[in-house]
């Protein structure tokens, strides 16, 4: 079974200064849960599978602070029916607001044909931490086709346009070489280093706009995460920031969910997926 799913999360700053999640809409395999000050993608069922068309919209209102994470790595698989799978994440971060988007890695399984799209609109004065990690196949496996496009604007100007194509050219020493995992962390809007830094498999790259792209290649996902964490610290420490900004806890009260679209109770929810 294939899904066209539209999930959404929205957060605003409440009068008491805390962030309140005002919208949490799960749909099909995109199930969202609020827990411990973050919204988690819990993934009802396997996937994405070939033919899936998934969209997640994130809206962070002025001065609000939202973290979106995932409970586990996602395994991107071919479907029973031909055709690519697609996951689009569109986020708007308003002035003074902060979004942390840190899902677990996506594993591109053999035979997959996947397009990941992320479109992020940052208003002037917004801050962002956006992590993406791709694992090229399960153990001992060559990945299918996986294209990840990342488009970010800041204050209406292009900040980053970045498309990683895991295809027949990706094993070139100019692209990914022998790496089995590739990842980036985009830090934007904070006080960040303007000095580039490079080490084996790790680059800390100040962009032309107010942002730093931490980029890493590694032989496995553990080393990839280590490098990205080290690069992120490097980008902040070099700018004199001792403690990275943390998201304040969101209040669990007053969360309104769209009728009929609550995770697990949607008619086409996770149950029918296996």
């Amino acid at each position: 079974m294939n899904f066209a799913s539209r999930a959404a999360v929205a957060a605003v700053r409440a009068p008491d200064g805390r962030t309140r999640v005002t919208r949490l809409r799960s749909d099909g395999p995109l199930a969202l849960r609020e827990s411990g000050g973050a919204v988690y993608l819990v993934g009802a069922g396997a996937g994405p599978l070939g033919g899936d068309d998934l969209e997640l919209t994130i809206d962070v209102g002025p001065d609000a602070c939202l973290a979106v994470r995932s409970a586990a790595a996602s395994l991107v698989l071919p479907g029973r029916r031909p055709g690519p799978s697609r996951l689009a994440v569109r986020a708007r971060v308003a002035a003074g607001a902060r979004l942390v988007f840190e899902p677990e890695p996506a594993i591109a399984a053999a035979g997959c044909d996947h397009r990941a799209l992320a479109e992020v609109t940052l208003e002037r004065g917004a801050t962002l931490t956006w992590r993406e990690e791709i694992v090229l196949g399960r153990h001992g496996e060559r990945p299918g086709r996986y294209v990840s496009r990342f488009d970010v604007t800041y204050d209406g100007l292009p900040l980053l346009h970045h498309e990683l194509r895991v295809d027949e050219n990706a094993t070139s020493a100019a692209v990914l070489g022998a790496a089995k995992a590739a990842g980036t962390v985009l830090l934007a809007g904070e006080d960040l280093t303007r000095e580039p830094y490079a080490a084996e498999g790790l680059g800390v790259l100040p962009l032309a706009g107010p942002a730093v792209l931490v980029t890493a290649l590694a032989e496995d996902t553990v080393r990839l995460r280590d490098r990205l964490t080290r690069g992120t610290a490097e980008a902040r420490l070099a700018a004199g920031i001792e403690d990275p900004p943390q998201s304040p806890p969101t209040t669990r009260a007053a969360v309104s969910r769209d009728a009929g679209a609550v995770a697990g109770t949607a008619p086409d929810g996770g149950a029918g997926r296996r």
Partner: peptide
């Protein structure tokens, strides 16, 4: 406008600098 990225070239460029 195409935006195909080459992470290894990015790293090489900085190491070279």
């Amino acid at each position: 406008l195409p935006a195909a990225s080459a992470p290894a070239l990015d790293l090489f460029a900085e190491l070279h600098r």
